[in-house]
């Protein structure tokens, strides 16, 4: 499968791919087959990740221009993207690209990824400075009108079947009550909420 990882927590996903699954990681600057950071002395300045940092290319890697890269993304050829999030609302709508008046970095490839990837996963902290990030409605500008499929935090896994937030799993040792207390969105709670298997 072809997977695009955002910067920050999502980057860590590459370290936890189970054996037996073939995953190609895309860097949207024009690379499929992104490998780990090179050892010192083996840096190739013309091979970088989407933050401009030196990376390696794995066997079978290929490179291409930005039109192809975003054709892959918008065209539905990317099976999954894992992105960071500032806020997610109870329908699964994501805000992750600006805080008006404070932080205006630009959306980069985030809007294309959320609009185009087959499956969108948000990996983020459950709260920010004690305040919930999974809300009834996002106060920050949205990234896309397309809802995300899954939110994974250090407390819970939340899905959005039929446009409504539903708790799927809880982190080891975390109770449903603790998750509800840290979540503003209306959250459907099934009878059985299993612990994440880590």
């Amino acid at each position: 499968m072809l997977v695009n990882l955002g910067i920050g927590i999502p980057t860590l996903v590459a370290n936890y791919v189970p054996d037996g699954i073939r995953v190609f990681f895309q860097s949207e600057n024009g690379l499929i087959g992104t490998g780990p950071v090179p050892e010192e002395g083996l840096i190739q300045p013309l091979l970088s990740d989407a933050a401009g940092r030196p990376v390696t290319a794995l066997p079978g890697a290929c490179t291409f221009d930005s039109a192809m890269s975003f054709g892959l993304i918008r065209g539905g050829h990317v099976d999954m993207t894992v992105l960071g999030g500032l806020q997610v609302d109870q329908q699964g709508l994501l805000a992750n690209w600006m805080i008006p008046g404070k932080m205006v970095p630009g959306m980069g490839g985030a809007m294309d990824l959320v609009s185009g990837a087959k499956r969108v996963v948000v990996a983020m902290q459950h709260t920010a400075k004690g305040q919930p990030k999974i809300l009834k409605a996002c106060s920050l500008p949205l990234t896309s009108a397309r809802p995300v499929d899954l939110v994974v935090s250090e407390m819970a896994v939340i899905a959005f079947p039929d446009g409504r937030a539903a708790l799927v799993e809880r982190a080891p040792g975390v109770t449903v009550e603790q998750i509800l207390a840290s979540t503003e969105a209306a959250l459907a709670i099934p009878d059985n909420v299993p612990e994440m298997k880590l």
Binding site: F70, G109, D112
Partner: peptide, 11 residues
């Protein structure tokens, strides 16, 4: 600064 989604900018 005009901010444009990356896939839109290249297109």
């Amino acid at each position: 600064v005009d901010l444009v989604p990356q896939g839109t900018l290249i297109e």
